[in-house]
């Protein structure tokens, strides 16, 4: 389980998150939603050691991560798929997967690559192409595939639906649900497309201006009469 306690974090001297308490239970999808500029990406960057943690604790299965460098966090089993720049555009797909599985042995890398390509067969045809030539949807698939290469305990997914057509967004969300259901991976999903994310999520947090305004079941937030309308742009709570 990933646990965040009384977290204050930001960049250099700028504080962005205030007193964040968050739990990501094992083999569940925890969704963090909120408006633009709420600090959702900073939350993931704080876990990964990219943002500065001023106070509080980040604990993965009893190990404290506070301000550990990103490569050490990755080695502990946390896999981060950022919103922007989530693939190496100048590298081929094979090289991208190789970099994603940097910590694996040669044998493990080969097996994991085959396994991941079986999960995303659409990528097989482009294996020698540069990632920069892929479409938006294909890039997101590659980004998720790269996240899986690291044999993660926890995956941090940052707004994977940005700039995608609704149909592609649906497919990406289905893929994320499969990661939990078929592979048993724990997921912390940060999303602006709140409705789609809350539909597949188990637990949810609403982050506004760097503070948690709601925590509870994802389905409850989705159907919350005021919060869903006020902060998430969901017009009719279903």
């Amino acid at each position: 389980m990933l646990n965040i306690k009384n977290l204050y974090s930001g960049y250099i001297k700028l504080k962005i998150l205030f007193d964040i308490n968050l739990e990501v239970p094992t083999t569940e999808i925890t969704v963090v939603v909120g408006p633009n500029g709420a600090g959702k990406t900073t939350l993931l960057n704080s876990i990964m050691g990219i943002a500065t943690v001023f106070a509080g604790e980040i604990i993965l299965d009893g190990i404290r991560l506070k301000n550990a460098p990103p490569y050490k966090v990755a080695q502990l089993g946390i896999s981060y798929v950022p919103q922007m720049g989530n693939v190496f555009a100048d590298l081929t797909l094979r090289e991208n997967l190789m970099m994603a599985g940097y910590m694996l042995s040669k044998e493990e890398l080969k097996n994991k690559t085959d396994q991941v390509l079986d999960m995303f067969p659409v990528l097989k045809g482009f294996i020698q192409r540069k990632a920069g030539t892929l479409s938006g949807g294909e890039r997101r698939m590659l980004a998720i595939a790269m996240g899986l290469m690291r044999k993660p305990k926890v995956m941090l997914l940052d707004e994977l639906s940005t700039d995608l057509a609704p149909l592609i967004t649906k497919r990406v969300m289905e893929s994320i649900a499969r990661l939990r259901d078929e592979l048993g991976i724990t997921i912390l999903l940060v999303e602006q497309m709140a409705k789609r994310a809350l539909e597949i999520g188990d637990k949810a947090y609403l982050l506004v201006s760097g503070e948690i305004k709601y925590s509870g079941k994802a389905s409850d937030l989705l159907h919350h009469p005021e919060l869903s309308k006020l902060y998430l742009g969901i017009k009719e709570a279903e």
Partner: peptide
């Protein structure tokens, strides 16, 4: 090459 292109993603990949 990966670090030159995207140091944050490279580091998050365990490099």
């Amino acid at each position: 090459r990966a670090t030159i292109e995207n140091p944050i993603l490279a580091s998050a990949s365990g490099i």
